[in-house]
Write a protein that binds this DNA or RNA. Sequence first.
DNA 1: ATTTAGCAGTCAAACAAAAAGAGTGCTAAA
DNA 2: TTTAGCACTCTTTTTGTTTGACTGCTAAAT
Lengths: 359, 359
Amino acid sequence: MDFDTGELSERKKLILKSIIEAHIKLGEPVGSKYLMQEANIPYSSATIRNEMAELEELGYLEQPHTSAGRVPSELGYRFYVDSLVQEYDMTTKEAAELNKMLSVKMSEIDKILDNATKVASAITNYTALSLRPRPSSIMIKRYETVYLDSRSFVLIMIASAQDTVKTKNVKLPFDVTKDDIAKLSEVLNDVLAGVSVDNINISLMMRMESEMPGCPELVGIVVKSIYETMNELGSEIKFEGVNRLLQYPEYKDIDKLQKMLSAIEDKDDIVKAVSTIDQSDDETKVFIGSENMVKIMDDSTLIYKNLKLNGKTIGAIGIIGPCRMDYSKVLSTIDKLSDEINHLSENNLLPGALREDKD
Amino acid sequence: MDFDTGELSERKKLILKSIIEAHIKLGEPVGSKYLMQEANIPYSSATIRNEMAELEELGYLEQPHTSAGRVPSELGYRFYVDSLVQEYDMTTKEAAELNKMLSVKMSEIDKILDNATKVASAITNYTALSLRPRPSSIMIKRYETVYLDSRSFVLIMIASAQDTVKTKNVKLPFDVTKDDIAKLSEVLNDVLAGVSVDNINISLMMRMESEMPGCPELVGIVVKSIYETMNELGSEIKFEGVNRLLQYPEYKDIDKLQKMLSAIEDKDDIVKAVSTIDQSDDETKVFIGSENMVKIMDDSTLIYKNLKLNGKTIGAIGIIGPCRMDYSKVLSTIDKLSDEINHLSENNLLPGALREDKD
DNA sequence: ATTTAGCAGTCAAACAAAAAGAGTGCTAAA
DNA sequence: TTTAGCACTCTTTTTGTTTGACTGCTAAAT
């Protein structure tokens, strides 16, 4: 038994610290057995129990109910923060990330898209997303092909940005030989390596066709795949108002919400899905439920529209929500918004907006 | 019974439209009784049931289970979007808001704060917030006082920005008369009306004291209230990573989550709480549970620190999470971050950052 | 004087069974 | 063709029961 000098014995401190840290890690009440076995406290559970009872009396711990373990009280956390917590050493990786993120700058286009997303989300009360298409600088450094069978092969692309590798399964409407596919990679590396998307033109395609006397039809199909991949690669997607999902009972089920949120967190699938939409398409697209290309979002609706500034597509905006979405409101908001952005440019409100387009 | 020409009878269309719109509004399966009573379909529930059964057969509706109402199928939504939905007329208020929001520009300081919040949230994996303090231009246009009793009165302030009215209940540690309070409003309007916060100085306070021979002690107390109110008024708060809350079991309970989210949505309470923190304070503050000034957040922890750039406080950053927060990590992240931002200015990475400080 | 083993007691969480409620489909009458 | 009425189905809610975790206490061991 300690003299009640207000100071805790070292053993009490150890136990208190262990309980708090275990609780922080696990989120559940901590019992005496756990402390003995997992936290390596060198006393029997009975002894620990006695100490815990005293710590509770002193106000550092609480018991949610009789037969539960102990949980730190506010006083316990306070004591921990004031005298028990140890400095955490940030890993160099984390420190670097911190620095990198801090110095990010936004282009004018990004700002427009960002604002548009915020407005869209605020007005419709759904989650909004914006897609910034690939910068024109993106390119494939090297191509590889792997023959699968006479009607399909794998196209492997190594991109300039951070050496990302993308693979694509290409299916063909006609038969090819192993040699055709081998020749293809040769020609691709010869003609297209290091060429940016926007510079892929008819002339290059014709050159490739002439270099592939065996199977010129391949060229058109492959170039389309390359184009799609490049779009996916460079695209940047952002979300706004994710928390608005919570208002809708379809996401009251934590699991569904999690599913949706992880799709949003991942971004990749959504980017991929949305990248397939033709960038010059002016229509507002509505993807209901499974029409949606992201499997995980098959009970949500995505409404999507390309945004133009001076006739040039600068990105796209979308709304995600439950299938039972207020279509009328969302559709008109998106349309109004895209109109308004076009006006922005006409009124010259954003001088230099297009200048900064290429990052 | 309709001939199966692929066309729906008007009555079917009406019922389908009603079901979809009711379901969009309520989020629950729609029954025949509801349609008859609430959606004013001029047929008996039995008739409506027959039509519903046919609409289901045609694929426009679905039944979650035998004894439930109907829910639109994807095909139903598709049909609705393609031919039933009516254009929604945006109210002029909404249109105006849209325009206003679209043309918002961010100051350099805002960008720094925004980035810092994102980084903080990403690294700690908790929700982060940033607080941008009042622009120095904010001021009170007019003051009113209402005497309550000898030890308290109400101070009413009409602010320059959008004529916002704020009232504050002021309690006194000494007795005053009704005349003192009346005189106070006179003096306040005389000396402080139209003066921006930063220009309230000792000289002005002394002038007020000399004009209030009856009770000079009032001045100091009142000025403090005014100062606090102005801080609340102009402050802008932003959140980042709200969805991260979901990872923690304490917010798995939808109710708790909602409570938290509504506190975040409202902003007001949090701004008020955080505004009371002295802006020149350099310490990292930890508010655990009920230490927190926002009642609704009394089982969460707020960690908070002022950010300085060139020695001047430009705002503050905070982390919100469950009480069982990884204090060690959060504390070091916040400290590192505020250091880093100080370095930003030293390295001159952000020319003109301070120039744009006043909006 | 401490520490520990063992056991009875308590309470939440998990499971199972029963009752209530909502909405349908069908039949027969209007 | 429409409607009233009733039996039926399936979810939701309620109620009761079991299980399991952890404690507090007592008595023995160090």
